[in-house]
Design a protein around this nucleic acid. Structure first.
Length: 872
RNA sequence: GCGGGUGUGGCGGAACUGGUAGACGCGCGGGUCUCAAAAACCCGUUCCCUCGGGAGUGUCGGUUCGAUUCCGACCACCCGCACCA
């Protein structure tokens, strides 16, 4: 018996696959297609273990679908623009381009060493001019269609990265990448109008177009889009109106509670606040404070509602003569609704907190079911539930829902406003004041305004800059005169290029279409895109549940509008895999230790030198906690197959998996065990025609054949449902059955004397085993296939089919319960009728013991499942 | 605060539509081999126990012949959103 040497074997098969072009995507469009895609990586320079898990999952699906006869597209590329390259340039003086492409080289090799069935001929990086040129073309098309807009707006400014951040990139008031507190700044920005598609982006979540998405992701998107229904309503000023203001327009979802209004409030950024702040230093200070705290220290600020009274009052729309005070309040957001509200403290907790502080009245107008209108009062808790209107003039007696529509109707009749829908979703600001991104193809001319770069002048390539430029803060493009200053394409006068580049989320919003249908002369070839899109299965991290996926969905719609695609949605099915975690270790001084620095001795974890180690929580692998393991070292020690196997074996794919050395060692043992079973059967596939099972066969043959076909059926079903951990458990089960199989018979029925190659049942089992493991551990599978004498590559071999006749059992083992407790097991023919089963159960010795002296009241027989005897 | 999810051996986790709880792996215990150890292989492994049983899927209750599964209440943890009017 030879020892399996993964190092030489894995390398051998990767070379053979490459030489044969085994994973080139076929041009055969008559076959059903299957587009499997994993979120492409950022080229940081090295793959981490999370990539191994992500790409191993995709590869299982890709190889499985290929074996099932699909025309499979499984491409790979690089999300290559972005800040780290500029940061590296700052530190090392290396040009971002050089750094990025060197990283891609390194990572490609690492990915290839995993043995992924990727069509590398379609590879590209988003920083290739051949890619971003087309992105600029799409930008121009969108601009023509009115999907792009340029406007002034407050932006989230990251003072460390010196760039604008999308709202989605601000987490707890801090930049998602730098972690620095975000400041507010007013700039002219480019926007993609994703709010134009809000209705459809929302509708598709529930109308079946995204039925292949996990519920939690759909829910997160729904919340993010944040549709709400209510009304816009203008409050007129009581007395003289301030200059250029004819009222305060508010947005509310509860127009039914208008009779309970006790104030109106506007956001600190509201024009009305600014108007009064001019002559009121105290107010001005207050507004400034709100703006400071608006994006940070949310925990402190959250609790306290603060406001400043403005020197105006407004008229109540429904109660002539009644007036309400107007405040600037810190809890009103300018960028939601109209930046102004009316406050109804009895039915809104924030408003209640606010009026308690400023001594305004609390008027309940919704009476909870069963409450007494004479005694019902709101103390510390606002009532937001259902009920009947009271204290509310013409709304009295109506239920909340009716009252809302009645109030809206009245508002419309009075000409003060109308029913309105409001969205939390805001347009996508794509301008970034950075160098390493896709240039926005626009030119600013003093005479002609903002002019698109003519299509013939595309691509607008990034200029060659000296690496030293990157050590100066700000955007190097602003200083690149030779690149920046150009004649206006319309009037020929002096003009300047747009120096903003696009958010890198733009790059990843259409790369899947480029993979499927890219052409040198255009972004996508529609016929190809129509064949391949949507992506049948997309796999990636849950961290992209909102941003990337929402942007890609919008982009797909925009590309449809501009005639590039027909697909409605980019990703038919989505799978979000869990993270890879690892225990954390610290020494006695509290410093983090990497897993390489600790060992387990006598059941205790110590440093290599024998110092005690504190074992901490199991957490997501991160550099700061040093609990990372390097895929390269693992591949060195255990091989790519073992690493892939372990990544898929331990936990359900959607859950986090803990990386353990014992676990991967177990996977390595499995690789050896399979080889030990296969190797003695050298040439077995040449000795048998597997399509013609022999008529004769021993009990042992039948037992093994049943195990084989049960494994085929089970593994197939598990892969189809993304239950890789269960598929692996079944393979183990099958392997155990195979190893325990007693001596088999040859095709002619004579004993095979234990020689595995001679027995049909064993050859069939090994053939199935090899094909079943191929998606998971492809190198070993090829080696087994070759050893067994299979034809060609196992990656080209058809997926095995289970014979239904071998899946049904002749006898079944049933549990027998007495009063719901299992007391015995009986073996009965599979098609035995209820009466026969009942008799068998009642005659069982253990059962007799338990029903002794009792009256049998009822016997429940569930065929093939269980017998329950009710006795008392 | 709102929304969603998860609780099963020492650990990761199985259990199809309400039908034998703990598949499979890890760990652990025992054995074979060895001068010895490692590796490998084999056997065992939910807990308690008087070996006949008893208890058991976060807690309490309900529905049912039968509940990890369905319903109600509670507890714990995780995730998302968060002054969204």
């Amino acid at each position: 018996m030879t020892r399996y040497n993964f190092k030489t074997v894995e390398l051998k098969w990767r070379q053979r696959w490459e030489e044969a072009g085994a994973f080139r995507t076929g041009e055969d469009k008559d076959r059903p297609k299957y587009y499997i895609l994993e979120m492409f990586p950022y080229p940081s320079g090295r793959i981490h273990i999370g990539h191994v898990r992500n790409y191993a999952m995709g590869d299982v699906v890709a190889r499985y679908k290929r074996a099932c006869g699909f025309n499979v597209l499984h491409p790979m590329g690089w999300d290559a623009f972005g800040l780290p390259a500029e940061n590296a340039a700052m530190q090392t003086g290396e040009h971002p381009r050089k750094w990025t492409y060197a990283n891609i080289e390194a990572m490609r090799e690492q990915l290839k060493s995993m043995g992924l069935s990727i069509d590398w001929s379609r590879e590209f990086a988003t920083c290739d001019p051949e890619y971003y040129a087309h992105q600029q073309r799409l930008f121009l098309d969108f601009w023509k269609m009115g999907l792009v807009e340029r406007r002034e707006s407050y932006v989230n400014w990251d003072p460390v990265d010196m760039t604008v951040l999308a709202n989605e990139q601000v987490i707890d008031g801090k930049g998602w990448r730098s972690g620095a507190p975000v400041e507010r700044k007013k700039l002219s920005q480019w926007f993609f109008k994703i709010t134009d598609k809000a209705e459809d982006l929302l509708a598709a979540l529930d109308d079946g177009r995204l039925s292949g998405w996990p519920d939690n992701v759909r829910l997160m998107q729904r919340n993010w889009i944040g549709k709400s229904k209510g009304a816009r309503l203008k409050f007129r000023f009581a007395g003289a109106a301030p200059k250029r203001f004819d009222g305060i327009e508010i947005y509310t979802t509860r127009p039914d509670t208008l009779f309970g209004a006790s104030f109106v409030a506007v956001a600190p950024d509201h024009p009305l606040a600014a108007h009064f702040a001019k002559d009121d230093p105290e107010l001005s200070v207050f507004i400034h404070e709100c703006q400071q705290t608006g994006t940070s220290e949310e925990a402190i600020e959250k609790a306290e509602k603060k406001g400043k009274r403005l020197p105006v009052e407004v008229e109540h729309p429904f109660a002539p003569g009644k007036t309400l005070p107007v405040y600037v309040a810190n809890f009103i957001l300018m960028n939601y609704g109209t930046g102004a509200i009316f406050g109804c403290p009895a039915h809104d907790q924030r408003d209640l907190d606010f009026v308690r502080k400023y001594g305004l009245p609390v008027i309940p107008v919704v009476l909870p079911p069963g409450a007494d209108p004479k005694t019902f009062a709101v103390e510390d808790e606002a009532y937001a539930g259902p009920g009947t209107l009271f204290n509310s003039g013409f709304l009295n007696g109506l239920a909340v829902e009716e009252a809302i529509s009645t109030a809206i109707k009245r508002i419309e009749d009075l000409g003060l406003g109308a029913g309105a829908t409001n969205w939390r979703l805001r347009d996508w600001g794509v301008s970034r004041q950075r160098f390493w991104g896709c240039p926005i193809p626009a030119i600013h001319c003093g005479k002609c305004g903002v002019v698109p770069v003519p299509e013939k002048d595309l691509p607008v390539k990034l200029p060659e800059l000296d690496a030293s430029e990157f050590s100066i803060p700000g955007n190097p493009l602003d200083r690149a005169e030779g690149w920046r200053d150009v004649p206006c394409p319309e009037c020929g006068g002096r003009a300047r290029r747009e120096t903003d580049t696009m958010d890198t989320f733009v790059d990843s919003s259409w790369y899947f279409a480029r993979f499927a249908a890219g052409r040198p002369d255009k972004p996508v070839e529609k016929a190809d895109a129509d064949y391949w899109l949507p992506v049948d299965q997309y796999i990636g991290g849950i961290e992209h549940a909102i941003l990337h996926l929402l942007y890609a969905r919008w982009f797909t719609r925009a590309m449809k509008d501009t005639g590039w695609l027909s697909a409605e949605e980019p990703f038919a099915r989505l799978f979000t895999q869990g993270m890879v975690t690892h225990a954390t270790y610290r020494d006695k001084k509290g410093a983090w230790l990497s897993p390489d620095e600790v060992v387990s001795r006598d059941g205790k974890v110590v440093t290599i030198a024998g110092e005690p180690v504190i074992v901490g929580a199991i957490e997501k692998m991160s550099k700061s906690k040093k609990n990372v393991v390097s895929p390269e070292r693992i591949a060195e020690t255990y091989g790519a197959d073992a690493a892939r196997w372990f990544m898929l074996s331990d936990s359900p794919p959607e859950r986090d998996v803990e990386w353990t050395e014992d676990g991967v060692a177990g996977a390595w043992r499995l690789v050896q065990r399979i080889w030990d079973v296969v190797e003695p059967a050298r040439g077995a596939l040449k000795a048998h025609d597997l399509s013609k099972p022999p008529a004769k066969g021993s009990e042992a043959d039948l037992y093994l054949r049943r195990a084989t076909h049960a494994a085929i059926a089970g593994v197939t079903d598990d892969i189809e449902h993304f239950r890789f951990n269960k598929a692996i458990a079944r393979i183990y089960e099958f392997l155990n059955a195979l190893k325990k199989a007693p001596p088999m018979t040859k095709a002619d029925g004579t004993p095979a004397m234990g020689a595995r190659a001679e027995a049909f049942a064993q050859a069939e089992a090994l053939s199935a085993l090899t094909r079943l493991i191929a998606p998971f551990i492809p190198h070993l599978a090829e080696e087994c296939w070759e050893t067994l004498g299979g034809e060609g590559f196992v990656c080209d071999a058809p997926w095995p089919k289970a014979d239904p006749a071998l899946l049904v059992r002749e006898t079944v083992t049933l549990g027998v319960q007495v009063n719901g407790k299992r007391r015995a097991e009986i073996e009965v023919p599979a098609e035995a009728d209820a009466k026969a089963v009942e008799e068998a159960a009642l005659s069982d010795e253990a059962v007799k013991r338990h029903i002794d002296g009792k009256t049998i009241r009822k016997v429940v027989v569930v065929p093939g499942r269980i017998v329950n005897i009710v006795a008392g």
